[in-house]
Simulated scan of single mutants.
Amino acid sequence: MSRRDLMSADPAVRRVMIADDDELTRGGIRLILGGIPGVEVVAEARDGVEARDLAIRHRPDVVLLDIKMPHMDGLAALREICRSSSVAVLILTTFGDEHYIDEALASGAAGFVLKSSAADELEPALRAVTAGEMFLSPPVTRQAVTQLRQLRQLRPTPPGDDVMALLEQLSSRERDVLELLAQGLSNTAISERLVISESTVKTHVSRILQKLSCENRVQAALLAHRAGLLDQGGG
């Protein structure tokens, strides 16, 4: 079953708000959303103040929020939206915005969608965050683990017994999935690499997060790098 079939089988309507100061970007995102079954665009904001006010007024299921906007930047709007409602906020980012990852996640973002990959990523992102999960574009994961690798090279520290004990809970296949996840591969890419179905990969990822007590893929990837799992596997 394709991703489009999966979305069509889900009757829930996802009410979405777009917040971006660039009119062409908003129009492009609106066109993409118009091709996704069960999605309704309920509002559009041109700056951070509008994003905050419209999100509180319309209470969409998901806000697609740019970071660099006039009057109030996206991170400030994110904090106010999350304080005032339970709306899921997906950060719309270019790959030049990677230094905002930690602050956005700490402020309550449900994930990141790359503008350059929006046509492919918006559909699974909306499905994930409306199910209470987190969505992170694979390059965002790769950027996070690259930063960790750099820190480890500056100050290498051996993994603690607690980290190794967590990894020992994983099956051999789960360790394979974790290693590829830590390289920043998407579920689709992992399924192709291991020659297993994408649904099986998703099940493995869910079990990995549960066993490692991680909230999202980035945390699991960072733990894998901390433990030197990729070094052992030659990744």
Rank of each mutant, 00 (worst) to 15 (best):
G160W: 04
S86V: 14
P139K: 08
E44N: 02
A221G: 15
G132S: 12
G160S: 10
E192K: 11
L212W: 03
S137N: 05
G35Y: 05
A119I: 08
D176S: 11
T93S: 15
R142A: 15
Q232S: 11
S197Y: 05
T25D: 02
P60H: 06
S197C: 09
I29T: 05
A55W: 06
G38K: 06
V42R: 05
R193A: 13
L178Y: 02
A144E: 06
E23A: 15
S213L: 14
D20W: 02
R79D: 04
E103W: 06
D10V: 12
V39E: 08
E174A: 14
G35H: 10
G184Q: 05
P37K: 09
V63C: 06
L54V: 00
V89N: 03
T130Y: 06
K115E: 05
I190C: 03
Q153S: 12
Q183F: 00
R152V: 02
D120N: 08
V13K: 09
A104H: 07
L154G: 02
V205F: 03
E174G: 13
L65V: 09
E103R: 12
A131Q: 14
S213C: 12
M7R: 14
N216E: 08
R217Q: 14
G132P: 07
L78C: 10
I91W: 01
D10K: 09
R226T: 15
A227Q: 04
R152Y: 02
D53T: 11
R4I: 14
P37C: 09
L194H: 04
L185D: 00
A106Y: 03
Q183I: 00
L230G: 15
R52Q: 13
G111D: 03
S84G: 08
Q210D: 14
L136F: 14
V13R: 08
S2A: 04
D53W: 00
S199N: 14
A144R: 09
A43M: 07
R142D: 04
A220K: 02
L194K: 03
L185E: 00
R142L: 13
V201S: 05
R15T: 01
K115Y: 04
R83T: 11
P124D: 06
L229S: 05
S172Q: 10
Q219R: 13
I81R: 01
G234C: 11
R142E: 11
V218W: 03
S213F: 13
G27S: 10
S137L: 09
V63E: 02
I208C: 04
T130M: 09
S206N: 09
I196V: 15
I36N: 04
I196P: 01
P138T: 09
G38R: 08
Y100D: 05
R127A: 15
G233C: 07
L167T: 10
A118F: 01
V62Q: 05
D97P: 00
A144P: 01
I190P: 01
H99E: 15
V177P: 00
D66K: 05
N216P: 00
T25S: 13
H71P: 00
V87F: 04
G233D: 07
E179Q: 12
R26E: 05
C82S: 11
E179W: 04
D21K: 09
P159R: 05
P158H: 10
E103I: 06
P11H: 10
A12K: 11
S137D: 03
R226S: 10
Q232L: 15
E192G: 09
V177R: 00
L166D: 10
P156Y: 10
T25Q: 08
Q147R: 15
G233V: 03
R173I: 13
A144L: 10
A45W: 03
